[in-house]
Write a protein that binds this DNA or RNA. Structure first.
Length: 468
DNA sequence: TTAGGGGTATAA
DNA sequence: TTATACCCCTAA
């Protein structure tokens, strides 16, 4: 296995897994208001993106979201600045605007976020930066945008240089932080990291991953897919060795055949997968190189499965992850802030700069953009292996850059694959958020036409099944 | 919003 | 008949 790391694309892939893992840890820390740990995880991520990383489409949004959280996290610190010398909340807004631009959706959510910009003013007033508060007030709330008299109140407070008003005191920034976390988790729930999934589900997961790939290929016509049964068998045996899967390949075949006989509804899902497989091949001049390593073959398959179609056609030259983010964010670190002495800030010692968050970091980040850019451009034709199935198994409710519905959602509810999938979501949801948080679980997985009560009932039945 | 009781429809 | 999925209702 040691030699495997030297294979092209391997480090990128592993870095991606690590990125996903620490993103998840960062979000957990944020959720439990452990902001110290959050900052540590953020720094780990910041350091990680210096290395080449497998940057398929959702990597970009993940990085953006971490950036957003990081900026929100520091929103109440007066001396912190992110890129372009913006305050953290301004940066957060800008980051979100970038997400909107890049995904061409979420306009309503942008408005929602803009309405939260009163917090910038409140933070400034709280820190007695009245000049800045005034500037922000005029910048974000031009004439005629006074909602519920807030603007007038703030203008008055700024004029009187009064920072102890109850509105200012009672506004809890920590609550806002959690709101913002809810906000983005709802927009783009991070799938469970592959590394955790492997730990939790072990061979069961890999079995089903391969089962779905196999199902997709099995029913596909020979002209449009060039993955043969033999190749799949090779892939399966390789992966089974790595993941210690004991189920023989023939069991997969049997499962698929059984499903095919039982289900006609599955066609819809498979068509969707087929479509993507062929699109991927189109991009690669329709050829799957004959004697590629088996792992690469699997990566092709899941590349097709995982990529939302809209994302496939990114702007020319915009293949990078950090690279493209750097373009819009200006110079500086991607995730971590740097701290500055405000011109009107009285205390020089207030710049408690993290040793890593200095200009060298920013240089490093700039280097990282190049490193990632270079490698990610190639990534499109190279892709990764099993991890993409991670997303397949735990789909994200929001498909960035693609307005299409989840193919699963158009399947009849009693279709076995859907049931299996939904049961998996319920199981994962309970594992991740705990039994009883049905509303949360409903929101975190792309259930369609399911209420929290349905999910609760489903879990009830599943538990009963376990007992009997 | 959730837990839990209980009813109905459906398929085996 | 039984198991299962889903639905509805009510209390907390």
């Amino acid at each position: 296995m040691a030699a495997a790391v030297q294979q092209p694309g391997c480090e990128e892939l592993i870095n991606r897994w690590i990125f996903d893992f620490y993103s998840s840890r960062a979000v957990d820390a944020f959720r439990s208001a452990d902001y110290g740990s959050f900052a540590q995880f953020r720094d780990l991520l910041e350091a990680l993106v210096v290395r080449p990383i497998d940057g398929r489409s959702d990597m970009k949004i993940k990085l953006r979201l971490m950036q957003f959280l990081s900026q929100i996290n520091d929103g109440d610190k007066p001396d912190v600045r992110f890129q372009n010398h913006l305050t953290p909340l301004e940066s957060a807004l800008k980051t979100f605007e970038d997400i909107c631009t890049e995904t061409e959706v979420l306009q309503n959510d942008l408005e929602h976020l803009k309405s939260e910009m009163f917090l910038v003013v409140i933070v400034c007033i709280k820190n007695e930066q009245f000049q800045k508060a005034g500037d922000m007030l005029h910048k974000y709330f031009p004439k005629g945008t006074d909602s519920a008299g807030k603007k007038k109140l703030f203008e008055d407070l700024i004029k009187r240089r009064y920072s102890r008003h109850t509105v200012i005191k009672s506004t809890s920034y920590s609550e806002f932080k959690q709101d913002m976390l809810d906000f983005i988790e709802k927009l783009y729930p991070l799938p469970e990291p592959f590394l955790l999934k492997v730990r939790l589900f072990g061979s069961y997961t890999i079995f089903w991953i391969l089962y779905y790939i196999f199902s997709a290929v099995e029913t596909h016509s020979a002209e449009t897919t060039q993955l043969s049964l033999n190749r799949l068998r090779t892939v399966y045996l390789e992966l089974a060795k790595i993941f210690s899967v004991s189920a023989p390949f023939s069991q997969l075949e049997e499962e698929v055949q059984k499903e095919a006989e039982e289900e006609s509804g599955i066609d819809l899902e498979l068509n969707e997968l087929d479509l993507r497989l062929s699109e991927t091949q189109d991009e690669e001049n329709g050829s799957v190189a004959g004697e590629r390593a088996s792992q690469e073959q699997s990566s092709r398959a899941d590349h097709g499965i995982d990529q939302p179609e809209g994302q496939e056609k990114e702007r020319p030259g915009d293949h990078t992850v950090t690279g493209s983010i750097m373009e819009t964010s200006g110079s500086g670190s991607i995730l971590a802030p740097y701290q500055v002495r405000e011109v009107n800030s009285a205390t020089p010692e207030s710049t408690n700069v993290h040793p890593l968050e200095n200009s060298k970091r920013r240089e490093d980040a700039a280097v990282s953009a190049i490193t990632v850019a270079q490698l990610v451009i190639e990534e499109d034709s190279q892709s990764s292996d099993m991890e993409a199935n991670d997303s397949q198994q735990t789909p994200s409710p929001l498909k960035i850059g693609s307005s299409e519905d989840n193919p699963l959602q158009s399947l009849p509810m009693n279709s076995t694959p859907v049931r299996k999938k939904q049961s998996d979501w319920v199981r994962q949801g309970v594992a991740r958020y705990g039994e009883g948080r049905w509303e949360k679980i409903k929101n975190m997985f792309p259930f369609k036409g399911r209420t929290a009560v349905n999910i609760k009932d489903r879990w009830r039945t599943m538990k009963k099944q376990k007992f009997t």
